[in-house]
Design a protein around this nucleic acid. Structure first.
Length: 597
RNA sequence: GGAGCCGUAGUUCAGCCCGGUCAGAACGCCGGCCUGUCAAGCCGGAGGUCGCGGGUUCAAAUCCCGUCGGCUCCGCCA
């Protein structure tokens, strides 16, 4: 067998006149009768191989029989292409390899879809034949980019003295958070391991162990429904530091992100990253992960309508809600377009969508007739309304208004292409509430996770909240308690989040109590962490980045499937392997599982 | 659990709204020609359970119901 001496994509000036051996896949064949052109492709790119009948008849004969995606080895000489026949689309387009010998290493059946960038293939087919999909230039580049990111990440961590340590995949199911994937234990009938949602507890324990700075690029697993940016298994860049405060973790995180952007994209992000509070993000964008590359900010109008005759608005205010609006400037929307947007918000659970089209000298709207002159004037002023604008309203409980307008804002931006895709909007969200009331569970739940430290100055509020028997007062007090947490957001995606952790047993007990986790339950589920906190736990904090999201954003991709070699479909299926699948009764018996009728 | 979009040759799609030469195109595939192409070109050919099941109708790719699958979103995701 001929042994490769160079990658196709790396043929350059220095190879002129040299004889070398290339190995790769037949990307395309162009047979002109007497001369055959082969675009030969490998990991590094494509080069044109020429087989001429008159110079090397044997090589020509083989070339003549080649089909798409045959695997071949070519021995030949690099030469400059004849003037006028260069191909500027190829990196190697000034050269070609005159084949002296061609060996067919393997043939290929006709492909189920072409290995090119032009054809849009359905996700199911792409994943079933992932090995063909990954031969495509863009997919190959996505994975090579990800590979380069790993190298940069490791270098930055090493530079700062972080220690890479692996944590268990077979671990203990813990309450709170996402649904666990469970693994039945063969040796312990009826017992289960859980696959980790993240190495959270282990990294904290490593801090107690004194490793001081830990990192890991690690798979995390959550049994929840999928989205374009959510897979059941995904990768975190996880790290934790001892003897630090928020600034230290955020500072390091910024360096890591800046280095990635600089080295992989040649983009210098401005430091420090801007910070906005959770409350301000919610009020202005209706979400805690705002995309600020376009306007359409939420405008509060509650005070303007506090005495309004308009029943919908009045009712919302009366029941403690708010009135907010967004102004789609210069949109000149048709009635049909407004109807489409109405349908969109209805799919989010809104009853309808109130709107005003601002026209030259008049307002076109089904609701202005309910407003008095003063309300109209103030609302137009507050929203900076001009002819051509369309103003959309939402009046409801705060959470609902945020959800409706936050999503409408994004929907409009995408639909009407208001987003400058060449920009990266990077920011921190800080001052998260520590907990929020969960109506369904009828208790407080941690916004981040139960090990997140409250701000020192807010701890008295927690104690007060614990003592008061009045639930409304409790809610009021708790809502004021802020967490020492921080999320990094890029282009409207949460790419990372972390916090300073609780390292004092008493504080952890206090938080568990307020979360309604009993002493017994806490001991049973998190006892190992609580115990660790007794034995000299240093103050510590950390953060975890979603590597898949980060890479997808950097590559300008909409779905993290495109940066994962073998992802799952929206139903959690792997079309390549057929997982998940049934297992034999014998296997089930071994792990003590009986099928339900 | 819910909403929306999609499903027609190997592939990408048109046809569906208005039921009746609507089984079509391009690429790919097969055969032939061709010495400078590069998404080569020219000539010829094969190829479809219109996702699946049911219903309406004289007649269904087309209308209706159900179901499966893919995608996007809501819920869910500390």
């Amino acid at each position: 067998m001929l042994k490769r001496s160079k990658y196709c994509g790396q043929i350059s000036e220095e190879d002129l006149g040299k004889e070398l051996v290339l190995c790769g896949w037949v990307h395309r064949v162009r047979n002109h009768g007497g001369v055959v052109f082969i675009d030969l492709r490998d990991r590094e790119g494509i080069v044109q191989v020429v087989a001429e009948e008159k110079t090397y008849p044997q090589a020509y004969e083989v070339a003549d029989s080649l089909k798409s995606e045959y695997v071949i080895a070519v021995r030949g000489t690099v030469r400059r292409r004849p003037p006028g026949t260069e191909n500027p689309k190829l990196k190697t387009g000034n050269y070609e390899v005159l084949a002296q010998e061609i060996q067919i290493l393997n043939t290929s059946d006709p492909l189920p879809f072409p290995v090119d960038e032009e054809t849009h293939i359905s996700e199911e087919l792409k994943l079933r034949y992932r090995y063909l999909d990954l031969r495509r230039e863009s997919m190959k580049e996505n994975l090579l980019f990800r590979h380069r990111a790993y190298q940069v990440i490791r270098r930055v961590f090493l530079k700062h003295g972080f220690v890479e340590i692996e944590t268990p995949f077979l671990t203990k199911s813990t309450p709170e958070g996402a649904r666990d994937f469970l693994v039945p234990s063969r040796l312990h009938p009826g017992k289960f391991y859980a696959l980790p949602q993240s190495p959270q507890l282990f990294k904290q324990i490593l801090m107690v162990a004194g490793f001081d700075r830990y990192f890991q690029i690690v798979r995390c697993l959550r049994d929840e429904d999928l989205r374009a940016d959510r897979q059941p298994e995904f990768t975190q860049i996880d790290f934790e530091m001892s003897f630090v405060e928020e600034e230290d973790v955020m500072n390091f995180s910024e360096e890591l992100i800046c280095t990635l952007f600089s080295e992989l994209l040649g983009i210098e992000l401005k430091r420090p990253f801007e910070r906005i509070s959770y409350t301000s993000a919610m009020e202005r964008y209706g979400t805690d992960k705002p995309d600020r590359r376009f306007g359409l900010e939420l405008i509060d109008l509650t005070d303007i309508f506090k005495n309004t005759e308009f029943k919908v608005f009045a009712d919302a205010i009366k029941s403690g809600g708010v009135i907010k609006a967004i102004n789609f400037k210069a949109s000149n929307l048709s009635r049909k377009e407004i109807d489409e947007l109405t349908q969109f918000v209805q799919s989010l659970g809104a009853k309808g969508l109130a709107w005003i089209k601002v026209e030259e000298g008049k307002l076109n709207s089904p609701i202005v007739k309910f407003f008095n002159q003063q309300e109209i004037e103030e609302l137009l002023k507050r929203t900076h309304a001009q002819a051509g604008d369309t103003i959309f309203f939402s009046a409801d409980q705060k959470e609902t208004v945020y959800k409706i307008l936050g999503n409408l804002r994004l929907h409009i931006a995408k639909k009407y292409k208001l987003i400058d895709e060449s920009k990266f909007d990077v920011l921190w969200i800080v001052d998260f509430p520590l907990m929020e009331w969960d109506e369904e569970e009828n208790r407080f739940v941690a916004l981040h996770h139960p090990f997140t430290s409250p701000k020192e100055e807010d701890i008295p509020l927690l104690k007060q909240a614990l003592e008061t028997p009045h639930i409304e007062e409790k809610k009021e007090l708790i809502s004021k308690v802020r967490a020492r947490a921080y999320d990094m957001v890029i282009n409207g995606y949460e790419v990372g989040g972390g916090s300073i952790r609780i390292h004092k047993r008493e504080v952890q007990d206090l938080v568990f109590k307020l979360l309604g986790i009993s002493q017994v339950e806490a001991e049973e589920k998190f006892g190992f962490l609580l115990n660790a906190l007794r034995y000299g736990a240093p103050p510590h904090g950390g953060l975890a980045f979603g590597l898949d999201r980060l890479i997808a954003i950097m590559r300008g991709l909409d779905s993290i499937r495109d940066v994962i070699a073998f992802p799952k479909t929206q139903k959690g299926v792997c079309p390549l392997t057929g997982a998940p699948d049934y297992v034999s009764p014998k296997q089930l018996k071994e792990v003590h599982i009986k099928e339900m009728g």
